[in-house]
Every structure is written in C-alpha cells, then in structure tokens.
C-alpha cells in the first residue's frame, strides 16, 4: 500500500441522478499514481457516465471527488479538464491537420507545443511523419491514435479512456490497444479505461472496477475480481 499522497484521484460516494433516475450511485474508489483501472460492466451500467463526472462534462448530483487531494469544486472546470484528460469512443478530430489537433489543448492556455514534441507524440502513437496530414484522410484507427496523442499532449494527471477501441475493426483495435498500453506504461500515466470487454481490461489494466446499475459491485486486482466473478 502506498501512502495517501500517492492517491491521484479519490471519489467519495459519487453519484448522478437525472429526472429521478440514478445513473451513478455512491461510487467510492481510489486511484494511485500510475494505476491503470479498467471499468467494466454491462451496457447501461453507468461506466461512461461515471467517467463523464470525473472531468465534469456532467455534474455530480451527490458525493464528491478529489483530484490530487483537492475537491473538484475548488478547481475551475477548464483546469480540471486539462488535468483529467479524456479520449472518447470516437476520435472527434477537429478539421485541420494532425499537428493542429495535437496542439489544441496547450493552445487553449496560450502554450505553443514545439514541433519536436508534436513529432515525439506522433512517433509514440506510431504516426511518425503525420504532422502535416489533413485529419479527413486518416483511417479510424489512425484518427483514434491522434485523439489519444492529443489528450496526452495536455500532460494530464489522469487520463480517462471511454471504450477507445470499440468503434474500430479488429486490426485497428489491436494497434490502438498496443499504443495505449505502451504509452501508458512508458509515461507512467494514471488511467481509467472503460470497456465492455473483460479481455481488453485484463490486457491493459492492473485493477478492475465492476459497475452494475450505476453502483460499484467489485473492485480489486484483475485476477481477484475475475475469480470472485467466476465463483459467484
């Protein structure tokens, strides 16, 4: 067990209710520096909704969460979102070049990302030399790797990945998964990965959180959780 200052993200009975329906309920977890937490569960379990609360794309209606020991309400939404990056199921690249997309986050703070850093990020995601390419000429897998590099370019403390490979074909899925695993390990990134596929979670994550009906059903090291599920 690490000491408390290593906890990057902690949720405390976090929840969201919309029109009387609880989408996320009383989820309390801790994520430490460098942890990769897989979030699994059936459709409608609240996996994506839980992620959206953590970078405040949606507002929690109960409980709270702490980023680096600060309550989220003490951090401006923009600063929080820079520190808690997110890659969505679809790349949603902005019209323009790959480099413009990579620079988007730092540009918002008036920081110019050097050409060398852009090239390095693209090399890490296997897109060496793609900086000047127009985004509308990219394949689905390439676009998703650019979206991943774009999120990493913001130097987040925590990276949220919402089913990042589910919209891709098998080959692209494998490529993107490899890129995520390599970059996350090499950069010692703290990650929360939502997936409906337990095998993907087993390949990418150290621990698993199982959500059902918006509640945390199980959380722990992968083998432990899978064993509990197998015997229950």
């Amino acid at each position: 067990m690490g000491s408390s200052f290593e906890v990057v993200l902690r949720t405390d009975r976090l929840g969201r209710t919309v029109s009387g329906r609880a989408i996320v309920q009383d989820v309390s977890i801790e994520v430490r520096q460098g942890d990769v937490l897989g979030i699994v569960g059936p459709s409608g379990a609240g996996k994506s909704s839980f992620l959206r609360l953590l970078n405040r794309l949606d507002e929690p209606t109960s409980g709270t969460f702490f980023l680096e020991a600060r309550d989220y309400r003490q951090i401006t939404p923009r600063e929080l979102r820079r520190k808690v990056g997110m890659v969505m199921q679809t790349a949603f690249l902005f019209p323009g070049t790959v480099a413009e997309n990579i620079r988007f986050g730092p540009d918002q703070r008036g920081e110019r990302l050097e050409d060398g850093r852009v090239a390095e990020l693209l090399r890490q995601v296997g897109l060496d030399g793609f900086a000047a390419h127009a985004v509308d000429h990219l394949s689905g897998g390439e676009a998703q790797r650019v979206a991943f590099a774009r999120a990493v370019a913001n130097s987040p403390s925590v990276l949220l990945l919402d089913e990042p490979t589910s919209a891709l074909d098998d080959l692209a899925k494998l490529q993107v998964e490899t890129v995520i695993r390599d970059v996350v390990r090499a950069s010692h990134l703290t990650c929360l990965i939502v997936t409906h596929d337990r095998e993907v979670a087993a390949r990418l994550a150290d621990r698993i959180l199982v959500l059902e009906g918006g509640r945390a059903k199980l959380i722990g090291p992968i083998r432990e959780v899978l064993n509990v599920e197998a015997t229950s």
Binding site: G85, F104, Q108, R109
Partner: peptide, 20 residues
C-alpha cells in the same frame, strides 16, 4: 456534440468549443 465536448475535455473555453 462529440466535437464540442472533445474541445471542452481538452480545456477549451465554451465560446471556443462552439466558435465554428
């Protein structure tokens, strides 16, 4: 919506996210 929220998720101001 996806593009707007992607921009927000990268720390963009709301007016930047919808300027296009």
């Amino acid at each position: 919506v996806g593009h707007v929220e992607s921009a927000l998720a990268l720390g963009a101001a709301p007016e930047t996210a919808v300027s296009r």
